[in-house]
């Protein structure tokens, strides 16, 4: 009997399956290779920048004290942009998918997709030319009435503040988040919507009972895509923000603001030489790691309640 096992024929392998398996595995591996390539590049080029002495780089500072304000600026800009954009994106997506008449919803969806195609330099122009000056009175009002909150300190006269940059960022990440949320909301199973309606849910209650729980992980994914863009957005921030190097302040509407990592690289790369370039690359590595950590955290958040996700 033992010989039968040795001589048993393997099931036939079909060429189509094999080609497809090879292609998809290859595509998967390619992603890893690219990621590893970027990671290795950033690490190899960045380490000399991290180890550089203050008198060897343009900033005249050790790496950590130099990069910390940039990290702070990046995180605060991206976080506030996300806080502004997520509720709006969910609201707009829900309007398109469930409230608007079908035709209007389609037109609306199309317009949102168009917004995503506007280049960031245009948003930057809009931010600096239009939004910033128009925000000045509002900032003065915020300072006058809410100055007990540390966010609203001495206001800027130009309006080129971190809060303005956040609003520009929020507008920029809105389309992609709205588009994803809309697609997911549209896929809510009819069965769950009807379950809620049959219990006597109003439209909003139906959204809370059936649509949002079902769309939860999708909303997190959409927010992560938006956050990724906000963390990495360079040009619009570089244009809008009036930067003071090394600034770390809670004041969101002041005239001296921390820069973000990406904007700082863009603004300084051309004029940098030697170890200063390495320091900039090292700050890129920090951004790379931040993005990773944020994504891991988001996945973990979704995973923790996967039992209740509706996928089973």
């Amino acid at each position: 009997m033992s010989t039968t096992q040795a001589t048993r024929k393997a099931p036939p392998v079909r060429p189509g399956d094999r080609v497809f398996a090879g292609l998809s595995t290859g595509a998967g591996i390619l992603i890893l290779v690219i990621l590893a390539g970027v990671g290795i590049f950033l690490t190899a080029k960045g380490i000399p920048g991290i180890l550089a002495k203050p008198d060897e780089v343009k900033s005249g500072q050790h790496f950590l004290p130099w990069v910390w304000p940039l990290v702070y600026g990046t995180l605060i800009a991206a976080t506030i942009a996300l806080l502004i954009a997520v509720p709006v994106a969910i609201g707009v997506a829900l309007f398109i998918s469930h409230y608007a008449p079908r035709r209007l919803g389609q037109i609306f969806g199309y317009l949102i997709d168009l917004l995503a195609a506007v280049p960031s330099v245009v948003y930057g122009l809009w931010g600096i030319q239009f939004l910033a000056p128009h925000m000045v009175p509002f900032y003065a009002w915020l300072n006058k009435h809410l100055s007990f909150i540390p966010f609203f300190g001495e206001p800027s006269a130009t309006g080129r503040t971190i809060l303005t940059a956040c609003i520009v960022l929020a507008v920029m990440i809105l389309p992609i988040m709205t588009a994803i949320c809309r697609e997911i909301f549209l896929q809510t199973p009819r069965l769950h919507e009807e379950a809620a309606l049959a219990l006597g849910a109003t439209k909003w209650e139906m959204a809370r009972l059936a649509i949002f729980p079902y769309a939860r992980s999708g909303i997190v994914s959409a927010a992560m895509l938006g956050l990724g863009r906000a963390l990495g957005e360079t040009l619009a921030v570089a244009m809008v923000l009036s930067v003071t190097a090394g600034e770390v302040t809670a004041n969101l509407i002041g005239s001296s603001n921390p820069s973000t990592i990406a904007a700082n690289i863009a603004l300084n790369f051309k004029e940098s030489t030697g170890l200063s370039v390495n320091a900039l690359i090292a700050s890129g590595l920090v951004l790379f790691i931040i993005t990773f950590l944020v994504n891991f955290a988001a996945r973990a958040l979704v995973e923790r309640r996967s039992e209740f996700s509706g996928a089973n």
Binding site: A195, A198, L209, A210, Y214, F308, S309, G310, N312
Partner: peptide, 10 residues
């Protein structure tokens, strides 16, 4: 309903 539809997230 025809098919059981408890809310999956609850």
């Amino acid at each position: 309903f025809q098919r059981p539809n408890p809310f999956p997230t609850m």
